[in-house]
């Protein structure tokens, strides 16, 4: 039980937390402006990963036939991420248009149900069109492992964490500094009077779904690099856990979603070394397969003491017309 071992887990937790944070952002942003949880969001993460797979495969084929060495692996990766984010954004826009916009004034439970239905439709369409077998995500960059004082870090892990942080920072800047970001913040505060500012609610809602879905697509591709096997249900448990992160961060809080995403990654990953330490100290025999049970019991405890999450408001400032 050394420092190195903990550092190793720390780095893994950073990577794991990046996925949660990127996906949790989509839940939080949509909730903040429309006060509904998009329960299809986990499946949009899955769709994003598959779109990434398709784009990467197409790009690789393109490079293969033209024989051009002018597209190195990392450039293909960058292009894959950008193109897939763009395409998945449209999936989000379509989901908002067909599943949520018609139900905007309906009871929230109805919108939650449609979200779940859309999720099932996305999963089963995947099986219908791709046969349901697991697919391998192409490894676009050569894996390099660095040994930093006994701690092993791969170039992929570093890249995954940096790209995730970069996207979060970009989102933060967008929300703080641009006109559309300002409209999003305003809509989160009081969406009913948004039209009185000459702002179309539908446009801001579509934009929010687009951004959330694009971030989920980025998470899907980064996930594919780290764990290169995709399956149609990959978004289910992952999506629910990211949803937990969104709640833990405080409903509707962007900052909260990021921090809670990383926190959840840490709790989950660090539970395993914690179990090992406990086993050794007290001669116990707790299996590491109890990881999720223990990790989510901790989350439950946090929520009991902070029911509004880490950054949530204790009461809603939202008003009714």
């Amino acid at each position: 039980m050394t420092f190195n071992f903990l550092m190793q887990n720390f780095i893994n937790a950073l990577q794991w937390g990046s996925f949660y944070a990127l996906i949790a952002l989509g839940y939080s942003m949509v909730y903040s402006i429309l006060m509904l949880f998009n329960f299809a969001h986990g499946d949009i993460f899955m769709v994003g990963a598959y779109i990434g797979l398709g784009v990467a495969t197409a790009l690789l084929a393109l490079v293969g036939t033209s024989g051009a060495a002018l597209l190195p692996g990392w450039l293909i990766l960058v292009l894959t991420i950008l193109i897939s984010m763009f395409l998945t954004a449209f999936v989000g826009i379509i989901v908002e248009r067909v599943a949520y916009r018609p139900l905007r004034d309906a009871p929230r439970a109805s919108a939650a149900i449609t979200g779940l239905m859309i999720g099932i439709i996305l999963e089963t369409s995947n099986i219908l069109f791709l046969g349901g077998s697991r697919l391998k995500f192409p490894q676009l960059i050569e894996s390099v492992t660095y040994n930093i004082g006994g701690v092993y870090v791969t170039n992929k892990k570093i890249m995954i964490v940096l790209v995730s942080l970069g996207l979060m920072l970009a989102l933060h800047q967008f929300v703080r500094r641009t006109k559309y970001g300002m409209a999003m913040r305003a809509m989160a505060y009081d969406y009913l009077v948004i039209p009185l500012m000459g702002v179309s609610m539908n446009r801001i809602a579509a934009m929010t779904f687009a951004i959330g879905s694009a971030l989920a697509a980025a998470a899907g591709i980064l996930f594919g690099l780290a764990y290169p096997v995709l399956d149609p249900y990959m978004g289910v448990s992952f999506g629910w856990k990211a949803f937990v992160a969104a709640i833990l961060g405080g409903r509707g809080s962007i900052m909260g979603a990021c921090i809670a995403g990383f926190m959840l990654g840490f709790i989950e990953i660090m539970t395993v070394p914690a179990i090992q330490i406990l086993n050794r100290l007290f001669a116990l025999n707790i299996g590491s397969n109890l990881r999720d049970l223990i990790a989510y019991s901790i989350v439950l405890l946090i929520l009991i003491f902070r029911p509004h999450g880490l950054f949530g408001e204790a009461y809603s400032a939202k008003l009714r017309l």
């Binding site: 300002m182 305003a186 505060y189 000459g198 702002v199």
Partner: peptide, 20 residues
Amino acid sequence: GRRLFGNLTVLENLKLAAFA
């Protein structure tokens, strides 16, 4: 009830009104 955007600054409230 005025319905200002309390989380935005005074200037941001005015700028948002010019959105379109």
